[in-house]
Computed example of a mutant assay.
Amino acid sequence: MHKNILFLQGPVGSFFRQLADFMAKQEDVTTYQITLNGGDDIFSRSKRTTAYVGKPQDWSEFLKAYVSKHNITDIVVFGDCRFYHRIAKKVASEQGMQLWAFEEGYLRPSFITLEREGVNSNSLFSYELFEQFNETGLSLSEGENLTRKNSFWFMSVNAFIYYFFKLIYAYKYKHYIHHRPWLFSEETYSWIRAAVRKVTYAYNDYKLSKSVKSSLSKQYFLVPLQVSVDSQILFHSPFGSVEEFISTVIESFAKNADKDDFLVFKHHPMDRGFTNYQRFIKKLCYAYDLNQRVIYCHDTHLPTLLKHAKGTITVNSTVGISSLHHGTPTKVLGNAIYNIEGMTSQKELHEFWNISCKPCVDKFSKFTRFLKENNQIPGSFYMKPTNTFAAISKIILS
């Protein structure tokens, strides 16, 4: 069967273009792309690429006509909750096409996620199949121990190029709706501020790292915060905002936790220049008389925080999986595929502070192997070994 594969928005950079080129070399495969803004444009291949410059309300009809004209069999996206991708998912379902969604790896930093229909709480992850999964005789996924220490800098450079050309070609894509609400000037200013804050907070983060390994060890609960506009908050949680999540956790901690315990909020590194919850947390601490028991940090070493924590409370961040890896009791307040009895706490939050069990090592090991065999691909969006493209092609073309 001939495959006609349509690529929409990918991660910043040339990953989708290179993947499309790789797949187009396969027998009976033709790849296409629709660009939605100048960033997509600059990283695309002009051949077989179409610019959508219409209004958001016309996107559905445009896409229906496009997939019909080119006999599209599969649509590939990065993140299934973006406006254009949500509509693409609906069109794919109506037209009997496959939709493939990429996301940052559930098992970071050496994997990327690829699933049919959607990721995170939209995943087709089946608890029944997981329980039936037999890992006996399975070999480790190739490259699972790869490290991606330099991928942040590749991503940063690609992000700058992407947003720069998004601004340059704004006249062409004047109706485009971006999944991040900030203007280019706001993005630029915020990333500069993020760099300054990283330096400013370094000393306090260093001091906290020393404390959690000594006086605070096993006397605090870690609360990793997520990006304020992350789909994990907006679409995969019961909370309307990060602030609402913070309020819920602080109120429950004040009323139920041991008086000798502490609460450590860790800001998301990708949100450092965009938001700051210091004042908000301080006000809540005054209200609940917690001024000396709540700590707010930014770049404190995450594995160290997880290793010495008494427990972790998260909405649905993949930090929760890292917490389980470190054997730390974990409570999930949103929708997460790893929220499984025996791994995460199934107690209510008000009970978790005083009744928190460690995750089952065997069950977590089985879970990670299940992910590697079903939706985790060794590699990175910003460092592109050929074997990553080959593994992706094998899945989509099968």
Rank of each mutant, 00 (worst) to 15 (best):
M1N: 12
H2G: 10
H2E: 14
I5G: 03
L8P: 02
Q9T: 13
G13T: 11
F15R: 08
Q18S: 06
Q18W: 04
F22C: 08
M23V: 13
Y32T: 02
Q33D: 02
Q33V: 03
G39S: 03
G39Y: 02
D41I: 09
D41L: 12
R48S: 11
T49Q: 11
T49N: 09
Y52F: 12
Y52Q: 02
W59L: 11
S60W: 07
S60F: 06
E61T: 13
F62I: 03
A65E: 03
N71A: 06
V77Y: 03
G79I: 01
A92E: 07
Q95K: 15
M97G: 06
L99K: 08
W100G: 00
W100P: 00
E103G: 10
E104M: 12
L107M: 14
P109Q: 06
F111W: 06
F111V: 03
I112S: 01
L114A: 08
G118F: 05
G118W: 06
S126R: 10
L129Q: 13
F130V: 09
E131P: 03
E131W: 02
F133G: 01
S141M: 13
E144I: 15
N145L: 07
L146E: 14
R148D: 12
F152G: 11
W153V: 09
M155W: 14
N158R: 13
A159W: 14
Y163K: 08
F164Q: 12
I168M: 12
Y169L: 09
Y176Q: 10
Y176K: 11
I177T: 14
H179A: 05
E186R: 13
E187Q: 09
K198P: 03
V199F: 00
Y206C: 11
Y206P: 10
L208N: 04
S209M: 02
K210H: 01
S211A: 15
S211G: 08
K213W: 07
S214H: 11
L216P: 01
S217H: 01
Q219E: 12
F221E: 06
P224K: 15
S231Q: 08
I233W: 10
I233G: 07
H236L: 09
S237D: 01
E243H: 12
I246H: 05
S247N: 07
V249H: 00
V249W: 00
V249D: 01
I250L: 00
E251D: 11
K255P: 00
D260T: 04
D260G: 06
L263D: 10
V264S: 04
K266I: 12
H267F: 05
H268E: 04
H268L: 03
N276D: 14
N276S: 13
F280Q: 00
K283M: 07
L284E: 11
C285V: 04
I295G: 02
Y296W: 05
C297W: 08
H298F: 06
T304I: 15
L305Y: 00
L306R: 05
T314E: 10
V319G: 10
G320F: 00
H325A: 03
H325G: 05
T330W: 04
N339E: 13
T344A: 14
Q346V: 08
K347Y: 11
C357A: 13
K363H: 03
F364A: 03
F364G: 01
F367P: 05
R369I: 09
F370I: 10
N374H: 15
N375T: 09
Q376H: 06
P378S: 12
Y382N: 01
P385H: 15
T386E: 15
N387E: 14
A390N: 14
S393I: 11
I395P: 11
